[in-house]
């Protein structure tokens, strides 16, 4: 069953991108300015593209009969089959909260995709080569805002700091090793999440320092289990909204 680890590893990457894209889509018409509606929509669009490629690849490796394609995997799996971290499924908070989440997540994705450039799964390496440039742009965008808000007014500074505190319990899961990643890393296909943590922390830490913000204290609890299909309560609601159309009208096209 070694191939199942390969599938689960790809699903983890694809589901992170897909679910965060769904959350970012929720910002449209709610961002503080129209440029930011466009920006968050565009970031989500890049992530949807990555998710499509990653889920397609997961379906190929799984080689079920019949093969599950990107739509089957995105729309017809239940909550316990999703392999994303809990960070990305959390509901949208205020704008500073979102920038805190985007900074952590894009910094993680930058290190991740850079490490996957040499993946023994050539399709995964090719997806990473395309995605790495996109997520660098996302990280840069989040950085600009964290600097602006952190080094802004007392109010913006305070709310940016609160955003960082709010997402902090969900950050550790990005660097948590799991069976599929251990297998993938042994095979030269994937990367062990814990090996990225130092670089991600350094990259975020640098931004926080320039923004006159402080890295929050270690949280008293932290989220875990997403890679094994354990999600927070909000995940069911998110999937109900995301999958409703595809499930109510199977095979619908327009």
């Amino acid at each position: 069953m070694s191939d199942q680890h390969h599938v689960d590893y790809l699903l983890g990457l694809g589901d992170d991108a897909l679910i965060y894209a769904q959350r970012l889509g929720g910002w449209l018409t709610h961002a503080p300015q129209i440029e930011e509606d466009m920006a968050l929509g565009n970031v989500g669009l890049d992530l949807i593209g990555q998710a499509r490629a990653l889920l397609t690849r997961a379906g190929e490796v799984e080689a079920a009969d019949p093969v599950r394609d990107e739509d089957d995997l995105a729309m017809l799996r239940d909550e316990r089959e999703f392999r994303n971290v809990q960070l990305v499924e959390q509901p949208r908070g205020d704008f500073a909260h979102e920038m805190a989440r985007l900074l952590w997540f894009s910094s993680y994705q930058c290190e991740l995709y850079a490490a996957l450039l040499t993946s023994g799964d050539e399709t995964l390496a090719a997806i990473a080569a395309k995605a790495v440039k996109e997520v660098e742009y996302h990280r840069d965008h989040a950085t600009q805002w964290v600097l602006r808000l952190g080094d802004g007014t007392p109010e913006s500074h305070e709310r940016m700091q609160q955003g960082l505190v709010a997402v902090h319990p969900f950050v550790a899961e990005l660097g948590e090793d799991h069976d599929a990643a251990r297998w993938a890393s042994e095979q030269g296909i994937g990367v062990l999440p814990s090996t990225l943590t130092e670089a991600v922390n350094a990259s975020v830490g640098q931004v926080l320092e320039r923004a006159t913000l402080t890295m929050p204290d270690p949280p008293r609890w932290y989220a875990r289990g997403g890679r094994e299909g354990i999600h927070s309560e909000v995940m069911g609601y998110l999937l109900a909204e995301m999958q409703h159309l595809a499930r109510s009208h199977p095979g619908a096209t327009w």
Partner: peptide, 8 residues
């Protein structure tokens, strides 16, 4: 070869 991953 696609331009952006998510380019519609």
């Amino acid at each position: 070869t696609p331009t952006y991953s998510g380019c519609p």
